[in-house]
Design a protein around this nucleic acid. Structure first.
Lengths: 305, 305
DNA sequence: GATAATTATACAGTATCTGTATAAGTGGTG
DNA sequence: CACCACTTATACAGATACTGTATAATTATC
């Protein structure tokens, strides 16, 4: 039972004739006759009672007519859906991101994307940097907005810098150093640190440690919460100080004060990651939109971020 | 897009490999590759991202996988339904009949048929003889239980006698002739007749007229109701007498008395009509059941009819 | 770096399917 | 009653398409 066959069958049934069907299908009557008789043989039933003067469909034929009509409609529907998915009109887009880093611009971006591609179902998945890398690698994400990927992964993905953040210090409200408008890293040497847990963002963790080392001390890390918000709460509670990307000021910083560092400018880029080959149309469209909006995003992040 | 192609596509998608699919389908890997790449070309989309080490389905491919799976399931379903319809396991049976003539045995017959073929949907359609002939000819009925067909139609159908009825007289309750247990036709010569309308049963009408003519008179027909029940009501109301098949005593005869005729024995057969060729399996099964039950039916109709 | 496994391509052979020609059957018509 | 117009079925040749073999190219893995 092939779709080509079903099409000629439906034509014969609807036009009540082999010759008429052949004309409509731009073929020749014997070809139609053969297709139908082979279909009958395959199914083991008569589909039409034919004389030279009339072609009457059998009960089995009527059953097949109903089914075949549905199958053909579904084939047409499938073709449409597949093509739309191929062009990116239809589909899904799974965006993974670092919450605090994108909070200022992602909502507007997604809104714009959804307006342009209303048929695409967008999933927003907040994760840590480590989770993002793993999900991206496993194909559970289409794009990721996160920090630079580990070198082992980098060649499988295309990455674009979106904006660069920098490390700043967060201190408890009434902290001794809070009176300074600006601090050298070394000023923190004797204070206990709270750092985001290393598993969640190994690069950031190591970067902070190496900044401290460069300033001549090794940080005394007394806690490693599993979220940036928890880090800020710990700082706000007076448990310690932290060094973190400035963007986390987007979170609730009550009890904390933020102080820029006077002596380091290690950039912390936020990047867009997309599978190097094999990017779906919807994914490519989103990447294109991000690139289109880079100026706007950088303006936002330079001013308020 | 052919079903054969969809089958190999689904195999590739499920087994995540062209070679594996080829093994499962008992074909060879290049054939699979060609089918897929031609399918991609036809649809204008990539269905898989392939390397020599992995085959990953695209978004469009996932869409097609869903659709193709449904299409294949429906094809399988169609094959099953069509074959069952062909063997008579599944289908419908439209039975046309003369109400009064079959009332005594058709219900039991249909009940038995439905018990043997529970998947067949039986339609019971009461009609006049004229309507039955027309519906049978037009293919709106599968079988008909009615009087002999007009000669022009007879060769297109197979007919079996089920039982033979005879004409009897129906008189109003207090009619002068009602005292006789048995009447010659001629006794009715001076009485007005009520006859079932000729359009509904031309043969019966003509038969009654010719019986009267043979008895030496032409009936004075004062009314031609459109149902046998209406004829009986007219007779019961004292409007006239009628000659009709004995079986109509099955209807409500209040106000009427039935009297056999002493001088005529024209048989009025009830027949089963089935399209000569081109009979569906369900129809043939019903005809076979009727023939099997002929003895029982005749016993019923001889005794109580 | 060799191996084993994968997919893509080229080419030849086979199947299959189409189209032409023709036969056989049937209702309508003069 | 023969003829006509039209139908479907069959036979056969040709063209198309598809399959399978051989081979290349690529890439994890040992």
């Amino acid at each position: 039972m092939e779709i080509r066959t079903l099409k000629t069958f439906v034509a014969v049934a609807n036009l009540k004739g082999f010759s008429a069907a052949a004309r409509q299908l731009n073929m020749v009557q014997p070809a139609v006759s053969r297709q139908i008789s082979e279909l009958e043989e395959e199914l083991g039933v008569s589909l039409f009672w034919r004389s030279t003067r009339e072609v009457r469909i059998t009960a089995a034929g009527e059953t097949l007519l109903r089914e075949a009509t549905e199958i053909l409609a579904q084939e047409e529907r499938a073709r449409l859906l597949v093509q739309r998915t191929g062009t990116g009109e239809l589909g899904r887009l799974r965006i993974g991101f670092l919450g605090s880093a994108v909070q200022a611009f992602l909502p507007a971006l997604v809104r714009e994307f959804s307006a342009r591609f209303p048929q695409i179902q967008v999933s927003l998945l907040e994760m840590t940097a480590g989770e993002l890398a793993e999900a991206l690698m496993a194909g559970r994400l289409d794009v990721s907005l996160s920090r630079p990927l580990p070198p082992a992964m980098a060649d499988r993905f295309e990455s674009w810098d979106i904006y660069s953040d920098r490390l700043v210090a967060f201190l408890p409200d009434g902290h001794a150093l809070a009176s300074e408008p600006c601090l050298p890293v070394s000023a923190l040497s004797s204070h206990p640190f709270v750092l985001f847990q290393r598993d969640g963002a190994p690069d950031l963790f190591d970067q902070v440690v190496s900044v401290c080392n460069a300033a001549g001390f090794s940080p005394d890390i007394l806690a490693q919460p599993n979220s940036m918000q928890a880090v800020l709460i710990a700082v706000g509670s007076g448990l310690g100080v932290t060094l973190a990307p400035a963007c986390i000021a987007q979170l609730n910083t009550s009890g904390c004060v933020e102080r820029p560092l006077s002596d380091q400018t290690v950039p912390i880029p936020l990047q867009l990651h997309v599978r190097a080959d094999r990017a779906e149309a919807a994914t490519q469209a989103f990447a294109a939109l991000v690139k289109e909006e880079l100026g706007t995003i950088r303006k936002i992040m330079g001013a308020g971020g």
